[in-house]
């Protein structure tokens, strides 16, 4: 008759057992166990540590803040890019994203759209997946992009890239170009578009 009592006791103990973070607090080492808890949680939930999100978002925001191109300037560039890309692919206009990103040493302007495609089971057997743009069309898009973007930014003409990535229900078309002059938008370009230069304090 002792066994059920032990089991009862065990149940009771388990019920009363403190949570990981509480244990940590009692030991006055809250971080040790929270860390383990956080890692385990992360491993199961496949959640990326939020500091990467903070770092990446800030990187993009700071680049924009530091540049002399205003929010309107970026908006105009986004609009023009959208027009060009919609001549080549049929995509929801609002689906286009444009971003200035630091890639290693280089500052890149990246834009992409997603084109929904109906997946055809027969097609999946094909050796070569269907492409959105033929090489000739892709080259034409490159030329047009170069023209549009260089109206706003000074860019490396040889660095324009057009890529397609296939997903189960869509194809993402992304274009990227390297921005020249370290980490700034060209002053001339912004001036010619009537952008205000960065505020400089003046002596009172």
């Amino acid at each position: 008759m002792k066994r059920p009592a032990v089991a009862e006791n065990l149940k009771e103990i388990v019920k009363r057992a403190p949570s990981l973070s509480e244990l940590g607090k009692r030991m006055n080492r809250p971080h040790a166990l929270e860390t383990i808890g956080g890692l385990v949680k992360r491993a199961f939930e496949k959640e990326e540590a939020s500091k990467y999100a903070a770092h990446n978002r800030l990187q993009a925001v700071l680049l924009q803040d530091r540049s002399s191109l205003s929010a309107e300037g970026l908006g105009a560039l986004r609009h023009d890019l959208r027009l060009v890309m919609s001549e080549y692919v049929i995509a929801d206009r609002d689906s286009m994203e444009m971003d200035v990103r630091q890639c290693g040493e280089d500052l890149m302007l990246i834009a992409n759209v997603r084109v929904n495609v109906v997946s055809d089971p027969a097609e999946e057997l094909d050796e070569e997946p269907k492409r959105l743009l033929s090489p000739r069309r892709a080259a034409a898009l490159k030329r047009e992009l170069l023209e549009v973007v260089s109206g706003y930014l000074s860019i490396d003409a040889g660095s324009v890239q057009v890529e397609e990535e296939r997903f189960s229900d869509s194809i993402a078309l992304s274009v990227s170009v390297k921005i020249e002059e370290g980490e700034g938008f060209s002053e001339d370009a912004s001036a010619s578009h009537g952008m205000e230069p960065a505020w400089r304090p003046t002596a009172d």
């Binding site: 809250p30 971080h31 929270e34 860390t35 956080g38 890692l39 992360r42 540590a49 939020s50 500091k51 990467y52 903070a54 770092h55």
Partner: peptide, 14 residues
Amino acid sequence: PGMVRRGDMMTTED
């Protein structure tokens, strides 16, 4: 420091 260790706060280097 606890949040930094868990990856929920940017490090000084970041």
